[in-house]
């Protein structure tokens, strides 16, 4: 009997090897995604917060130079690794709103009209930075009516189904 041997593909687009990690010995490999229902504006607001140092490594950018092109790269990266799908597997792509950064963190903003998700059961996959660190933990907070529901995503279980 033939045993299938699927090929292991290492991601060349994210060549982490070449990049020196300038981090504390105690790294925390943690990201936060907030999905908040805003009844007033009738939108699902999505905010991703990650550590800049991690993001730079993921995008292979250095702090002082290539950041000028970061927006397009970041958008592609977020779209690749943060995905919403309906039960039938149809992808719902959030609208890109923008990004900002301070000394420590980078925030990425996306949104969706509430009507597009209301009442639907969506698979939320948040695997940002999981290609970098095997102990990456991404927390997804879903907030509506002041109540927060939390999902902990890790490599190997990077998706969760949420009823909106």
């Amino acid at each position: 009997m033939r045993i299938s041997t699927p090929k292991l593909i290492a991601f060349l687009s994210l060549v982490a090897l070449l990049f020196a990690s300038q981090a504390h010995a105690h790294r925390y490999h943690f990201g936060l995604t907030e999905m908040a229902v805003n009844e007033r504006t009738q939108s699902l607001e999505i905010t991703h917060r990650f550590f800049i140092a991690d993001m730079e490594r993921a995008l292979q950018l250095s702090a002082s130079k290539e950041m000028k092109d970061a927006k397009a790269q970041m958008e592609a990266y977020v779209n690749e690794r943060f995905q919403l799908r309906t039960a039938d597997g149809v992808m719902i792509k959030p609208k890109w709103v923008g990004m900002e950064a301070d000394v420590h963190d980078v925030w990425v903003y996306q949104e969706l009209p509430l009507a597009e998700v209301q009442g639907k059961k969506l698979q939320v996959r948040q695997s940002m930075l999981m290609e970098m660190e095997r102990d990456q933990v991404n927390t997804v907070n879903v907030t509506r009516d002041g109540n927060t529901e939390t999902f902990t995503l890790k490599p190997g279980s990077s998706a969760v189904t949420v009823q909106f």
Binding site: P6, K7, L8, I9, A10, F11, L12, L14, V15, A16, L17, E80, R81, S127, M130, E131, M132, E133, R134, K154, P155, G156, S158
Partner: peptide, 21 residues
């Protein structure tokens, strides 16, 4: 005891960094 991520992005892939380690 260290786990490895084999499905974070697509089936049959592993992170470069984990692979190297």
């Amino acid at each position: 005891a260290a786990p490895v991520d084999v499905e974070s992005i697509a089936p049959d892939t592993i992170p470069f960094r984990s692979f190297r380690r």
